[in-house]
Each structure stands twice: as C-alpha cells, then as structure tokens.
C-alpha cells in the first residue's frame, strides 16, 4: 500500500486480504508507545479510534506530536 506519511511517500507491505489500520501503520513505524496525534486526508482521527480506522491507497497521513516551543 502506498501512502504519503508526513509529506514523504511510504510503501507498506501488506497481505492483500488484510485491512491495514492506522494503528498498524503507527506500530510499523515503531511509534506504538508514543503519544501520536494523527490526521488522515486533513481529518483528525481520535486517538481511541486508530485501530478502527482503515487506510486506503494514496491516503495522506500526518503523524504529529508535541515538541518544545514557546
């Protein structure tokens, strides 16, 4: 599955029969234990719904967090 994650193309190898959730992507990137805020095609996906949100080809995903700032 081809996605755009944080502005860059990312290819996710998946079993064709399996549906890939947003949480699967987060796990794949090694961000499981991080505070991840996600936006898919400019729509925010609540943190509690990451596992239920099924990704589609060419979706644009933003994974953001809090960093130091004034």
């Amino acid at each position: 599955m081809n996605l755009i994650v944080n502005g860059r193309p990312l290819s996710l190898s998946t079993e064709s029969s399996e549906r890939t959730s947003l949480q699967d992507l987060i796990d794949h990137l090694g961000l499981t234990d991080k505070l991840v805020i996600a936006e898919v095609d400019k729509q925010i996906v609540d943190r509690g719904l990451h596992s239920q949100y099924i990704l589609q080809e060419d979706m644009k995903i933003e994974l953001v967090h809090f960093v130091g700032g004034g």
Partner: peptide, 28 residues
Amino acid sequence: TFAVRRMNIYEPQQPNFLEMLDLEHYTL
C-alpha cells in the same frame, strides 16, 4: 507551552520532553 510538529518517523525512539513530565502537575 509546546509546539505541534511532525514526528520524525525515521527515528521513532527519539526522546520527547513531554514523556519526562508528570502531566498531573502541569497544564499544557
């Protein structure tokens, strides 16, 4: 105060200051 930024998905284990705080004591 904090800023909102893209995560570095190529360095997933990069530490984050927020993780070091007891959030019960602070309002973000």
